[in-house]
């Protein structure tokens, strides 16, 4: 479905992503892990068109999307969330999602249909659908959910979820992980899930890809990756909790 081929990104000489290649298969949840600053978010920005790669190509459903702008990539069916939530604070919660539903599908001309899709997305993530709710009333978990709802409302086939668990307590983490699982099984959306902490992620994903200093150091089934010496070294062994 998505084919990332030796993609690189350098910021003024600093290589944040170094010739990373991988494939995302239709219907899977791919976990993308790695320590802070290993290039996970940058990789998302490269796929979603927010940054232009300095090398390599990205193909989505056979189409070269390497140099397409972010709005086009969204229309093609890739949605992304931001690690640090970026809500539109001047708009209400519902307006945030209606806007995304309306503009996220370039064939859509009906505001009523956009609203329907927005309400559906809000229900999926468990946020209120009434018009009066403001974004300011949301806490950290709520803002993460809004990121997801906005992405889902664009009717994607591939969802790039960036650290949906960051800043959440343990119970919220479990809920969020459960939600991603449901998004895949109920809505049939393929997911790439970035996380800095491995714990909860490992139980949900089908495959894992590990980044360190912008390079891919491991890829495979969660069990295999968690016991990979290179991965253990990166994580100093202590954060790999599969239980």
């Amino acid at each position: 479905m998505l084919l990332v081929d030796s993609v690189s990104k350098s910021f003024g000489g600093f290589l944040a992503v170094n010739q990373v290649s991988f494939e995302v298969k239709q219907g899977e949840i791919l976990g993308l892990i790695g320590p802070n600053g290993s290039g996970k978010s940058t990789l998302f920005n490269l796929i979603s068109g927010t940054y232009k790669p300095t090398g390599g190509t990205v193909r989505f459903e056979q189409r070269d999307i390497t140099n397409l702008p972010p709005d086009r990539i969204c229309h093609l069916g890739i949605a992304r969330t931001f690690q640090i939530p970026r809500p539109f604070k001047k708009l209400s919660l519902l307006e945030n999602v209606v806007l995304s539903a309306y503009f996220g599908d370039d064939a859509l001309r009906s505001e009523a249909e956009a609203r329907r899709r927005a309400e559906q997305a809000l229900e999926t993530v468990g946020l209120p659908t009434d018009a009066g709710v403001s974004v300011q009333s949301l806490g950290a978990a709520g803002l993460k959910k809004l990121e997801l709802a906005r992405a889902l409302s664009t009717q994607p086939r591939l969802l790039l979820a960036d650290e949906s668990l960051g800043g959440l307590d343990h119970q919220e983490m479990e809920q969020a992980a459960d939600m991603l699982h449901r998004i895949r099984s109920d809505l049939g959306i393929t997911i790439v899930w970035v996380e800095h902490i491995m714990g909860v992620l490992m139980k949900v994903v089908d495959r894992v890809l590990v980044l360190d200093y912008g390079e891919k150091i491991a890829e495979g089934l969660p069990q295999a990756v968690a016991t990979d010496p290179k991965v253990i070294e990166v994580y100093l062994g202590d954060q790999i909790a599969l239980a």
Partner: peptide, 18 residues
């Protein structure tokens, strides 16, 4: 709505297809 969103955050606005 689109212009309000753009005035706040162009990157986020573009990411939802605007």
């Amino acid at each position: 709505s689109a212009l309000e969103a753009i005035s706040e955050d162009e990157v986020a606005a573009a990411s939802v297809g605007i």
